[in-house]
Amino acid sequence: MIRIQQEDFDIGAEISKLRSGRTDIGAIVTFTGTVRDTAQGECISEMTLEHYPGMTEKELQRIEQQATARWPLQGSLIIHRYGTMKPGENIVLVITASAHRQAAFEAAEFLMDYLKTKAPFWKKEDGPDGGTWVDARDSDDDALKRWETRRKAAE
């Protein structure tokens, strides 16, 4: 399941919903991304996330399908917020559920690595010197390549 929304989410409630009535799940992994109050030593008063309605849904669905095809998942959820957020607020939630922990851990990491490099979201940080668009990081591209290498090694 994927959701793109302006409002905050309740991590506990989302986990409960995902596992409700199920006894086949043995491992649940969650990742939460939150707004930091500093970036490169500068204070951040708020962050605004812009996205591309239509394409965002399509990309997140595609990413989730890839994870489902690659790991034996019994459930997964991606929630990504857009709009203006203050330091400490939630930005993104990924939950993966599987019979065993390895698949759940790996799938959650894979989902985040793909989301960071493929989902059309852009962050703008507001601080004392005005707004700055966040630059993409090479380390995120490297994180993605790791999954491609692993896939080739497995083939």
Binding site: M55, K116, A119, P120
Partner: peptide, 10 residues
């Protein structure tokens, strides 16, 4: 057709 900088979500 959309044009944008490299994405920075997550």
């Amino acid at each position: 057709i959309a044009f944008f900088p490299p994405v920075t979500g997550g």
